[in-house]
Nucleic acid binder design. Structure first.
Lengths: 336, 336
DNA sequence: CTGAAAGCGCTAACAG
DNA sequence: CTGTTAGCGCTTTCAG
């Protein structure tokens, strides 16, 4: 592979000049021309590793997500990628599996690889520790989930409001025993959506105690949604509607329902997080739509601002969800 | 950030010794101990950029996929990741968008970043050019799609056989005018699945000419499947079954069918590529299941073999698909 | 505007 | 087994 000195020699200039040509230093047009020609003749392309070492910063940003198989995060990842590309940043996608240990390992790698910055959908609100990055001055933006104690920029949605609207919609539709299957305890999205659910129940005059049996924590995976729904169905007085806080768990919930011979909207089903196939499921699924792509794009924009040296105070961008009513919550009485 | 020399100084040894401790050279236990302690006191972790520069090889492999939002590729990515992790390799996920130009750019980056190797689901069978990597001696393994002229290890499935079985299943079910919506012309998966379709049609005694109007090339996206299905439905003698060669396009096909008031299995629908929600769609979808995770894992294993310096001749691992019959292909007559 | 020279942090000979 | 030394390819003072 040709190096910068090879090019310099071929063009009859110094390596420094070649570097300047490629990095926007002042060089006479005539020499620029000579360097460009030599570079293309030799098929030269700058060694990014050497550059990173010298600059103490790579042109790579890390994106840590809990589950790459979750469509929400792939869409978010695209948002990040598209935005990053415009500044010639590459994106490294890391799957933390909702495992704080694995996440810590990736954060260490981000440090060791001298990545320019990190966008992280934290595995845990409590235990995700971003302090090492902060200490090294590496810009971080939290997306979707926001670790409790971290002083970082963040992009979130109003999960509580979304959960509240969803639950209210179920209640308005005539359902009475509304259950909630939420994500891992400790994840901010789980807790916030659940808080929204609780607020809506409270507003509807349902007491805290009577709500409690209908709340289940699961793991944001298909199997978790399935298991939780089975439990709910086994209750002495099973729910007549269920608010599921992510789309994967909704798949599991629908499976469990079907196995018991129950079909929405007899039991109302509402999924937090839209899915491409929402309208294909019979009946079409009511969902809370999340601006996943935009969240990724915003996060990347925020990070790039910091990279450019913005000294602004920390900011949190809160995006809104949108309820998309479909048949699965038409109401228990609507069936003839 | 602490460097190797800081640790050396603190431990009273030379930098080389510290390096040996971290890379399995021979060092007396007593010194190993001292180095370890100094390193942990200082919070030292080796600078991977410097190491990559020195070694002329990073401990990162690139994974190039055409579409990160396609569940098939995310599952494949997980397979790669899980396998890579066992050798302490990180995986960089790159989205080529089925764009040869974008792919070329990522390939250049792989080179410039001195990645250890690359796993690529090629954007095009014809135009994807892996020669630059080969020239630099960078190991490459092709996965899913195999660029025509490249001398690389590969992991594929038997797409033609899968397509043949799928089509035969439709024909066996009593469908007569079986259409095929395949992916981009030039992608090996598109062509092979289509070839399987053609073979099965031929076997069933359907002439080449009468088959032709029922073949559509699309883009492996939802919209492409939708548009192709609309076209098919507008035919003077529309098909009574459609074999769709990926799951995303199947979503589009189902949408188009619904809009026309048609439901499977009246028109049979068979998707190449399983999806988590296959059984939730009404009626449940017959699919050809792809061993996506295993393909990723095999590809990573192959790459690691090369990285370890295996001199074996090039190999291609061919995995098998599995037909999963469900209601959507129960047959036109089965409806009462 | 240009070139010489000094390193970024690490590993791989090579002596000892 | 251990230390010394010499770079990997690039950017950036600092003189000129």
């Amino acid at each position: 592979m040709a190096t910068i000195s090879d090019v310099a020699r071929a063009a009859g200039v110094s390596p420094a000049t070649v570097s300047r040509v490629f990095n926007g230093g002042r060089v006479t047009p005539e020499r620029v021309e000579r360097v460009r020609k030599a570079a293309s003749d030799l098929g030269f392309s700058p060694n990014r590793v050497a550059r990173s070492l010298r600059m103490q910063r790579a042109s790579v940003i890390g994106l840590l997500v809990p589950d790459i198989e979750n469509p929400f995060f792939t869409s978010l990842a695209r948002g990040v990628e598209d935005a990053a590309q415009r500044t010639n940043l590459s994106v490294v996608l890391c799957n933390t599996d909702d495992d704080v240990e694995k996440e810590r390992r990736y954060l260490d790698i981000a440090l060791a690889e001298q990545m320019a910055g990190v966008i992280v959908a934290a595995a845990s609100r409590k235990h995700t520790d971003l302090s090492a990055l902060a200490a090294r001055g590496m810009p971080v933006v939290a997306v979707d989930r926001r670790p409790r104690a971290a002083a970082v920029d963040a992009v979130t949605v109003d999960n509580q409001l979304g959960g509240e609207e969803a639950t209210a919609h179920l209640l308005d539709g005539g359902y009475e025993r509304v259950a909630c299957i939420t994500g891992p305890a400790g994840a901010s999205t789980s807790e916030d959506r659940l808080a929204g659910y609780r607020a809506a129940m409270r507003d509807a005059g349902v007491s805290e105690e009577s709500t409690r049996p209908y709340v289940r924590y699961a793991d944001y995976r298909v199997d978790g949604g399935y298991a939780a729904t089975r439990e709910l169905l086994a209750l002495p007085s099973p729910p007549d509607a269920v608010f599921v806080t992510n789309s994967l768990m909704t798949v599991g919930a629908l499976q469990a329902l079907r196995e018991s011979g129950i079909e929405p909207p007899d039991v109302g089903v509402l999924s937090f997080g839209d899915v491409p196939w929402a309208s294909l499921v019979r009946p079409p699924l009511t969902t809370v739509q999340l601006p996943s792509y935009d969240m990724g794009a915003s996060a990347a924009a925020l990070l790039q601002e910091r990279l450019a040296g913005s000294g602004k105070p920390l900011q949190t961008v809160v995006l809104r969800t949108a309820l998309q009513p479909r048949e699965s919550t038409r109401g228990p009485a609507a069936r003839d």
